[in-house]
Design a protein around this nucleic acid. Structure first.
Length: 849
RNA sequence: GCCGGAGUGGCGGAAUCGGCAGACGCAGCGGACUUAAACUCCGUAGCCCGCAAGGGCGUCCGGGUUCGAAUCCCGGCUCCGGCACCA
């Protein structure tokens, strides 16, 4: 072997830019990662990563999301699975349209350019995507099936049309939430004040599945996501109760106002009513003297966002209508108010207010000087005790008090009796409500899937016949400098003959929410060119549900709930045979800009992966992204530390290429640690390698990539200490190197492939990719230890340690501990009051008074 | 505001069935190699006191439970994600 000083200059250096493109093209040539979906010789594994939106902001965040998933794909392949790991593009959406309006050009061009660039970057990552399965949602061959599915849902009664308000700018039409700026709520493009406008729009009936969506059995999903979805669906049981409007000098009364309540037992405490400002009876019930004030309030409430309206920390506002209602059990006349904290879209859009037992009603009553009447209380509380807050009762510890004023028998009973009593008189019914609303899919935009219906004066709403799908977007688009939907002005698109009667009719110009595209795309990956339907039933039966889905936690409720809904709806239309799309889910965190904000070009905080790849190579970037921190956490981007990961790969390179070299800078290079024999060293190497294998396998399974890499670094450091010594190149050394490369292969595919191929060449064996190797097995005998070190605490503070044989009994341990000089000195003649040997000898704590 | 998550050295983070706080890495410091620098390697390293041995303090803040708390409980603060037309 060469002498030290020379070895550093003579030995070939790790040069990723030479290695990586070579292996990438080799893998592509061999089609190493195209999946044979018909292969049944191995168990299938469908691994899905959320498909990217091809925004112009190509950044490190895309790598952060995809890299660990790719490592997992490789890990599973090494375990003998037939892995399907496809990729595609979520190609419709607002940013493309914004770019087109701003810079001219066509959303299609902008999108396809971004996709091209993204494909290149994703390839440079060395990821194992099955590119032949790719889908692009803006392709008519994809969105045709959106339309087809919509029509099936329409037939099944899952799609319907209803009025709904949008944010509206007189110049730019419908605005997305992010296009409404500031508390002034102005249009981002022209600055005009944003109005609300009611439009007929299309909905999907997600609420039909509300109860089924609450059932997560059989799903291995993170607990927080299940909780968020459960809260989002927001099931509450209660009753609907009718209150009658009392006659007065201006109107004859008698209208019924239906309220929803979860607390019918508190009906005797309902001292006023509140309607949503949008409630249909508001206009009719308003007293002429109150008209001006009410109209003003309704106007103001409509301008606010729901978040503002539901905020519990602002002062309650509202206006009395000047009309009264009658409490159906007490017969009392109670005033009717409108207030923005009641929403028209939840329950019946009206509530009975029970200020004693609901905090919002309490605050409202305080502000407007309304009666607060207690109905239930904790045991021992007087019925007239003053209240600082609403008492939200617990069923277990309350007792009923109060009102014998009108019907003593009812007042003493609970909610069920009251509802039953009212129900017999046709004034109430038990009811379950959900916070979940039906899914509004209409978008007043060009760049989305056209909703395939036609409006005919004679036949009304007419679905486009299947054989006329897809309804294509016109190829040219004229935005005319406005945000308004250009389809509204495109005569060639608009004008169509009614498929039923043949008379001139008009096309629907709304397009679909892009969440529609993303609610079933993984089924299409299995047969992207299938022309007889959206999915190939034989393939979906075999390959879905998806075994593992990974993606951002920002999709916890919307995309992940819509996808579950879609699968259930498709199943009920007979298209697939399953009711849940994703068996196991992992939500990774989001990588932010260095400033802690979301990465975007406009903020100027984008990290481009290309420059990092050029400087360090893809393997280093991949490894660094996995090493940065726990994958579910994300956080602000900082390249500090990428050099450490690069050094680690350099060390691996050196270990394999130059096992016998010696570092000139290390005075101890080439010699074993003092007191260690060659035999000791070989045992230590083998033990380190197998312990690492044991732990790393667990870390991969649990998505703990950062600690997985830390453990590989430790193993490399251990081996490095023996480099150039008599044990370098021994069979134990060789085995450890082999394990190190195999364990590292999923995370750093290029360098390991290169080093693997060199080892094969050196051994005169034929080439085989490291990525087709079998994951190694732990030798349990290599990891057993003969002794263990036990920390000793006195009164909970660490004071000493003692080494005992691994099989020492509790008595042996106690004796060893008490035999320590340091412990005797600390005890100073006292006997411990207690000796706690914790965790089967993991730690000893001596308790001394 | 509501729902969910997170706060640990100068920095990223490790340790969560209640049992050695700070693995691994970055930056720092000391050294080797080099004519020199870069690269590479070895060592050191929570903070405070101390020459040292050692001692005290320490996981966002305030309480509590326990032999023992980063971890469990109660109260609070800050930051991140979502809140239905960004994707």
């Amino acid at each position: 072997m060469t002498e030290t000083a020379d070895s550093r200059t003579r030995v070939e250096r790790y040069d990723p830019t030479a290695i990586e493109p070579r292996w990438q093209s080799r893998w592509a040539e061999l089609e190493l990662y195209e999946t044979d979906l018909a292969d049944e010789s191995r168990p299938k594994y469908y691994l899905l990563t959320m498909y990217p939106y091809p925004s112009g902001d190509l950044h490190i965040g895309h790598w952060y999301i995809k890299t660990p998933t790719d490592a997992l794909a490789r890990f599973r392949r090494m375990h003998g699975y037939n892995v399907f790991f496809p990729i595609g593009f979520d190609a419709f959406g607002l940013p493309a349209e914004n770019a087109a309006i701003k810079n001219g050009g066509h959303p299609f061009t902008w999108t396809m350019q971004n996709i091209e660039n993204m494909r290149r970057q994703l390839r440079s990552m060395g990821a194992t995507f099955a590119w032949k399965a790719e889908v692009v949602t803006a392709d008519p061959e994809y969105y045709k099936w959106n339309q087809w599915l919509f029509l099936r849902f329409l037939e099944a009664g899952l799609a319907y049309r209803a009025m709904s308000a949008v944010d509206w700018c007189p110049n730019d039409g419908t605005l997305a939430r992010e296009q409404v700026e500031g508390t002034e709520r102005r249009c981002w493009r022209c600055g005009a004040p944003v109005e609300k406008r009611d439009l007929e729009q299309w909905f999907l009936r997600t609420t039909r599945y509300a109860d089924e969506l609450l059932d997560f059995s059989g799903l291995d999903w993170p607990e927080p996501i299940k909780i968020m979805q459960t809260n989002w669906i927001g099931r509450s049981e209660g009753a609907e109760i009718d209150f009658e409007v009392a006659p007065d000098g201006f109107q004859s009364g008698g209208e019924r106002i239906r309220v929803f309540t979860t607390r019918p037992d508190t009906l005797f405490g309902a001292t006023f009513m509140v309607l949503a400002p949008e409630h249909p009876l508001v206009a009719r019930l308003t007293h002429p003297d109150r008209r001006a004030e009410v109209d003003l309030y309704v106007e103001q409430a409509r301008r606010q966002t729901e978040i503002e309206r539901l905020s519990t920390d602002r002062a309650k506002t509202g206006v009395a209508l000047g009309a009264m209602a009658i409490n159906p059990v007490s017969g009392e006349r109670i005033p009717i108010y409108i207030a923005d904290y009641v929403l028209s879209g939840y329950g019946t859009g009206a509530i009975m207010a029970v200020p004693a037992h609901d905090q919002r009603d309490f605050e409202f009553a305080k502000k407007f000087g309304l009666e607060i009447r207690r109905v239930v209380a904790a045991p021992g509380t007087a019925a007239d005790a003053p209240m600082d807050d609403a008492y939200v009762a617990h069923a277990a510890d309350e007792r009923l008090v109060n009102s014998d004023r009108f019907d003593g028998t009812l007042a003493d009973e609970g909610g069920k009796a009251i509802v039953d009593w009212l129900a017999e008189r046709g004034r109430a019914e038990p009811k379950v409500t959900y916070r979940l609303r039906d899914w509004l899919i209409s978008r007043q935009r060009y760049w989305g899937t056209p909703i395939p219906v036609i409006y005919c004066e004679r036949d009304g709403i007419v679905p486009v016949p299947d054989d006329q799908l897809p309804v294509r977007l016109p190829e040219t688009v004229d935005y005319a400098g406005s945000g308004d939907n250009p389809l509204n002005h495109d005569q060639a698109f608009l004008r169509v003959d009614c498929p039923r009667c043949g008379q001139p009719a008009r096309r629907e110009t709304d397009t679909m929410d892009t969440f529609m595209d993303s609610s079933w795309y993984w089924y299409r990956y299995l047969s992207p060119n299938h022309s007889d339907g959206p999915v190939d039933r034989a393939l979906t039966d075999r390959w879905t549900p998806v075994d593992q889905y990974t993606g951002g936690a920002e999709h916890a409720v919307m995309h992940l709930l819509y996808s579950r809904f879609f699968t259930k709806a498709m199943a009920d239309c007979g298209l697939i045979g399953q009711r849940e799309p994703f068996r196991r889910l992992f939500n990774q965190g989001q990588i932010l800009g260095a400033d802690g904000e979301r990465m975007s070009k406009s903020r100027g905080n984008v990290q481009d992966p290309d420059e990092l790849v050029q400087r360090y190579g893809a393997d280093t970037v991949r490894l660094f992204l996995m090493f940065m921190g726990p994958w579910d956490q994300g956080g602000p981007w900082s390249p500090t530390g990428i050099g450490g990961v690069h050094r680690f790969l350099n060390r691996v390179w050196t270990l394999v290429i130059d096992a016998h070299g010696r570092e000139p800078g290390d005075p101890d290079a080439g010699s074993l640690p003092p007191g260690e024999s060659g035999a000791d060293a070989r045992v230590a190497i083998r033990s380190a390698a197998h312990r690492t294998l044991r732990d790393v396998s667990v870390d991969y399974e649990a998505f703990r990539f950062n600690t997985m890499i830390a453990k590989l670094m430790e193993l490399a450091n251990t081996l490095f200490r023996y480099r150039g010594s008599e044990v370098a190149g021994s069979t134990e050394w060789d085995e450890a190197i082999r394990l190190l490369l195999l364990m590292l292969a999923p995370a750093a595919p290029h360098i390991t492939e290169e080093l693997w191929s060199r080892r094969l060449a050196e051994a005169n064996e034929p080439w085989a990719s490291i990525h087709t190797q079998t994951w190694p097995e732990v030798d349990p005998s290599a990891v057993v230890e003969s002794t263990r070190e036990i920390p000793i605490q006195v009164n909970g503070k660490l004071r000493d340690k003692v080494t005992v044989p691994a099989d020492a009994s509790q008595a042996d341990i106690e004796a060893a501990v008490l035999g320590r000089d340091r412990i005797q000195a600390i005890l100073d003649g006292r006997a411990p009051d207690r000796i706690i040997v914790a965790g089967g000898g993991k730690l000893v704590n001596l308790v001394v008074r």
